[in-house]
Every structure is written in structure tokens, then in C-alpha cells.
Amino acid sequence: MTILQFFLWSLLKVAVVTVVMLLGVAYTVLLERKLVGRIQNRWGPSRVGPFGLLQPLVDGAKSFLKEDIIPTAVYRPLYLLAPIIALGCALISIAVVPFGDPNVGPDGLHLFQISDVNIGLLVILGITSIGVYGIALAGWSSNNKYSLLGSLRSSAQLISYELALGLSLVGVVLRAQSLNLRVIVESQASRGILTWNIFGGLQFIAFFIYLMAAYAETNRSPFDLPEAESELTAGYHTEYSSMKFAMFFMAEYANMITVGCVATLLFLGGWTSPFGNLIPLPQNIVLQALLPIFWFVLKVFSFLFLYVWVRGTLPRFRYDQLMSFGWRYLLPLAILNIVGTSLWLAYR
């Protein structure tokens, strides 16, 4: 494959994945509004289009058309840079996620993954850790006490939970003996649900830690203290309006989707079928290519569903509870999990 071909294919893949990701973000927002509505015994959006399905488009148009206010006291360069960092980092990390059978497509080219990197897992962690600056700088440059408090909380929370998140993934990496996301998925593929890391791999503690840390990392309820509206107005994005606010909003949901993808890849067997080889593969080549994507999307969807369910059910933590939970329970538990997994792998 020549460089030009590679370049064109990559461009195509990036374009398609970005569009799908943004659509996914829009409809995750709708899913959340609908579900939380049902949990609170009301309908949620139902006016625009059938079942309110066109609501995200209208919301997008509204954000575009709103007046874009930049307060006079902000520190302009960073105020403008912050939403770009937040959304950019949220969208980039999907580049290493394989969301379908990698052997499909012309030779040497993975049709369902933008780039196959040896250290894919670390790339995702690295990009997420850079994404913190979006929130931190937004709060600081807004020159507003609520924003500053929100972003201080968020930075402290992210630093604390990043450790537990990273350590919870070590068990999975130990089992797969690779940081390549494709290899990690293939290591759990042999017997369907029985060899998934969460069940057969005995990594359910790691999964629990990952789940908690991921909620904190994406600033979602019950860890959504950076934007606790009852005390901080809107937290770090108080001073943002119009599309800049929408960018933070999209970044949050894009991060949710990425976290769901990582959980699927590491713990739930990625694109492989939960039935293993029990059900024979369909003969049709198109179906063969699309079935893995169906499983992948289904797993990510159930993760997003869980996200919304938790938000609709649990109250917010207090800040000191958040910190002590992260440092005193999750972190030691993650270290114990690593020790246990290593011992088990060594003396198996």
C-alpha cells in the first residue's frame, strides 16, 4: 500500500468515525434525557419528531444560534483554548479503539480501527490525562470564583482517580501480556462470555474499580462535584455560552462513550460474540463484518445505559467522601487486585 493510499484511507476512516462519534454524542444526550425522564416518572423530550428523535438536531441548532458572550474579565487566550482542548482530547482517543473484526478490509489495513498502536491502552490514558487541562484552564481563565472552585475540584478529583483507574487496568494487561487493545480483546475471545476478563478472567474487582474511577474521571454523577449546580452554579463552565458551552457538553458525552469503549474492550470481550463459537458465523460476508460491530455497539450501549441509570438513582457524594473513597478504598483495592492477579498467573 502506498503512502497516498494509506493517507486517503486514514482520512476516510477519521471522517466516518468522527461523524459517527458526534452522532453518538447527540443521541447519548437524548438517551439520557429520555431515560432520566422515565426514572423520574415523566416523558422526557417527545415533541420534535417521532418520540422526540429529532431533539438533538434542534438542540445543536439552538446552541449555534445563541449569542456568544465573552465576559470582559476573562483571560482571553486560555478562555478560548480550553473548550478546544476538552473536545479535541475527547474525540482523539477514539482513534486507537478497534470496534470491529480487524481482519476485514484490504490487506494491511484495519477497516474498523483508525490506527493499530502497540501501546493503544497507554495512548488512551495519556490523552485522557491531557484532557484535564480543558477543564482546569476553563475554570481558571473565567475569572469567576465558582468556575475556579469547580476546576480545582475537578483537577484534584482527576489526579486522585486516575491512579486507581490506571492500576485497575494492570490486571487485564497482565493477563493479556500486551498493551495492544486488539491483542487484549483476542485474549478473551476463545469461549465467549466465559473467557471475558470480567467473568473468566476473575477481574470483576478491577471492573468495579474501573467503573467507579471512570464515573469520577468523566465528572458524572455521583461524582459530578465539579459542576454541582446547587453550590457552584455550573462549575467550570459557568461563564461559557453558545457553542463553547456546547463543546464542553459534547466533550463530556464523548468521554462517556470512550470510557464505555475501553470497558467493553478490556472487560467485556470487545467485538467478540458473548456466545463464543456456539453460534456458527453467518456465511454472508457483509453480515460477518457487521455482526462484531453489532456486539460492540450493544456492549457500549449497555454501559451508557448504566451511566444514565446511576445518574438517575444515586445522590451526589460529599467532597471529603469522594477523596477518602478514592484514596482509602479504591487505591488499596486496586493494588491488592494486581498482587492477586500476579500470584494467580505465577502459580497457575
Partner: peptide, 13 residues
Amino acid sequence: AGAIMVLFTFVVM
């Protein structure tokens, strides 16, 4: 870039 510098900016803020 991710952890130590976040701490730096955190202190500055």
C-alpha cells in the same frame, strides 16, 4: 504532561 504538570497548574490556580 498529565500528572505532574496538572499538579503545577493546580498550585498556580
